[in-house]
Design a protein around this nucleic acid. Sequence first.
DNA 1: TGAAACTAGTTGCGCCTGCAACTATTGTGC
DNA 2: GCACAATAGTTGCAGGCGCAACTAGTTTCA
Lengths: 153, 153
Amino acid sequence: MARPRKIQELDEPHLEAWRSFLRAHARLTEVLEDELSRDLGLPLVWYDVLIQLRHAGGRLRMHDLARAVLLSRAGLTRLVDRISAAGLVEREPCPDDRRGTFVILTEKGAERLDEARPVHHSGIQEHFGRHVSLREAATLRRVFDRVLRSLEP
Amino acid sequence: MARPRKIQELDEPHLEAWRSFLRAHARLTEVLEDELSRDLGLPLVWYDVLIQLRHAGGRLRMHDLARAVLLSRAGLTRLVDRISAAGLVEREPCPDDRRGTFVILTEKGAERLDEARPVHHSGIQEHFGRHVSLREAATLRRVFDRVLRSLEP
DNA sequence: TGAAACTAGTTGCGCCTGCAACTATTGTGC
DNA sequence: GCACAATAGTTGCAGGCGCAACTAGTTTCA
């Protein structure tokens, strides 16, 4: 008799892929964080903030920056406090929307980013890129983008 | 004239793969953490501790458990404090090595794990496995294991 | 055997984060 | 135009983590 089946079960190969994925992420971010902090005194989140700002042309609203760096707005408030205390970004009120605040990449922030980028990129190459063929990189990107799209609202 | 070249440069496809990897990890763990906490009141790290204990036959030294769940020994001390306060594990002195402490999966912990496992696994299937072909899963595992091996010692 | 080096686990401390509550501003519907 | 809901950002608070220092036990080796 046909019994109702789950749409799909999680099988061993997928579970193994998942476990390797988790472990690789943990180790890679640990190593890259250490390298960037040690060599340049720049935490990875700081780097991420600076990169996102440059990517957006140098300025971003708190709200948008929070989404870009995957942080709560509260978390971002404190983070921007620290980074701006170091002079790498500045806050500026948003003229259109008086609730809003822009975060702006300063000259000094841009310099630090220029120093950090090659270091960080060669870390990624050294520990990740080097071990991944072009074909595999394409697969990774395709798969993860697919996963991400499914998680969007 | 042949100028010295870097061994390898990080190229766009690899960088894109890296970015998607990071975002996918952040979103997936966020969602799975929420599901497990909401449905069963069990944080993901707790689940991980219980699973690792079962995997090891029900008992593990603090030190080994810390490595298994990718936590500092200090972090694990507090984590085990919390989980054992909830009755899911117990500490027991190690007879061979009087510095050592075993963490032991209790009956209650095993029950909670049995409840959580199918929930967590269907979450992984729903948000990850479902979007990944068998062939892709094999690639992911192969790539990440390769990366992990390079990070050992 | 005995001292020095090492290892296991815990604790003090400070950092970073999210949640919930709050203020200020903007948008909506009658 | 005005009350009510929604949104932007900040702050109090508590949880969870790692580092460094500490205690206790073990290994090494002369």
